[in-house]
Design a protein around this nucleic acid. Sequence first.
DNA 1: CATTGTGAACCGATTCACAGCG
DNA 2: CGCTGTGAATCGGTTCACAATG
Lengths: 280, 280
Amino acid sequence: MATGRTHRPATRSRGIPEATVARLPLYLRALTGLSERSVPTVSSEELAAAAGVNSAKLRKDFSYLGSYGTRGVGYDVEYLVYQISRELGLTQDWPVVIVGIGNLGAALANYGGFASRGFRVAALIDADPAMAGRPVAGIPVRHSDQLEEIVRDNGVSIGVIATPAGAAQQVCDRLVAAGITSILNFAPTVLTVPDGVDVRKVDLSIELQILAFHEQRKAGEDVPDVPPPPPTTVAQDGAAPADDEAPAPAQAPAADDGQAPAARRDRKGPDDELPAVMPA
Amino acid sequence: MATGRTHRPATRSRGIPEATVARLPLYLRALTGLSERSVPTVSSEELAAAAGVNSAKLRKDFSYLGSYGTRGVGYDVEYLVYQISRELGLTQDWPVVIVGIGNLGAALANYGGFASRGFRVAALIDADPAMAGRPVAGIPVRHSDQLEEIVRDNGVSIGVIATPAGAAQQVCDRLVAAGITSILNFAPTVLTVPDGVDVRKVDLSIELQILAFHEQRKAGEDVPDVPPPPPTTVAQDGAAPADDEAPAPAQAPAADDGQAPAARRDRKGPDDELPAVMPA
DNA sequence: CATTGTGAACCGATTCACAGCG
DNA sequence: CGCTGTGAATCGGTTCACAATG
């Protein structure tokens, strides 16, 4: 598995830094807004503010694309919109397939943000036969038996996985085998793909967990200092130097507000995870 | 994000790098899987593979939490699950409100991944009176008039915004005013929040755009290099030296990087016709 | 031994600050 | 002038590689 797998150095996108690429869509959105309001030019300062970044970063980012601005003036909105669109490959049409038409898949199918940027939903695919033919967002759902056929016939190179975690890898494998080289994964699982295939993941619960981490620090500041549970078998430090607690780097002074061992979430349920895709 | 100026790294407290925090949920998920299969211990190598990272990174990450492993053996699964959960603040319950119950909001409400990790959907809120009372995922939707009341009464500190872009900032302001300090934003817009409030965003179309960028490079490489439009009036760069090419800062030595698309996309074509920038 | 934990090298990304230019 | 474009400094994160240690 991931063992010998050479790390995905697919990042050889020579030239434009990955971090910059990730921000281009942000600039594009801000620019589109200006364009709609017929603003002819913007300074890096203004555009940066609209995109939520700082101007130095924006200028540096643009410098990777070329010199598209005018000193003393700023950037021509229309021109930049075009250049960024082209750089991102949005001047062409990208047919995509969404696999797993559960709640999330359906929401994605209905999401206007896709279509508006050159992404065309070529097909909706689901493993549930009962879904077949049923239209979602005006597009009839097709059965996964036809996955390969659909991908090939439509020249789809981008696939969106919105299936339950358990089915994701399998779907991924089939998509890749069918020729897809870019995947947007919403299933909470790590996908293993061959070299040359790009995977980006969006994990809703991970985002919340990250927020929770910061939230915990803000409020209270002190984590529920429940005495660390016994290291089951290993690390069975009988009378070992009780070093449990967080040792490491500068430990913070444990304040201890109220406490409440709090209800320890037992995370051993049926491991629900992603929105189910309606069973058959 | 919201950190703006004052970067948190006061270094005083437990200095866990942001990048590490972002991976903890990943480790936790992998560990939960092992736990369910009753695996007692794991080596950094195995766990790293399951989480999709490399072992050095994982060990370094864990080193920020403390010394929870046993040399020559590995990590105790249950113990680690607990430690990470605690670090992330998942040992406590986090009530969240979801604002904007459209397709996406409904999908989120139905998303099992939230509930399974200590995130309790305290309420669903929508501005449409017609939605009020209607149950979604078993939870009755409430009208946004009651937003403040709901947040306060339930002690909600995390809010999820799934409204249209146009309403997002307003909703955000109200959530913040009501006391929320962490926001997960799904609306494709930049949110401005006061210091102390964390915002994480998930933008579906941005992810696709990033994939498109890479896809464009992979396939062909001979992208439809539509001749760049005339810089209307600005950025008129006269004849450029032979190979314009990207400015390419220092960047000379190309790392290993097997075969890079030799053909570099030329970025500046002579003037030409105005591009019909894509619609919105 | 095997495997952790970590200093130190490395590398990419951000920020600074100012030269360059319209 | 004002604002871009960019070297240089800095910062954060990753990787290396090995000493420490159960």
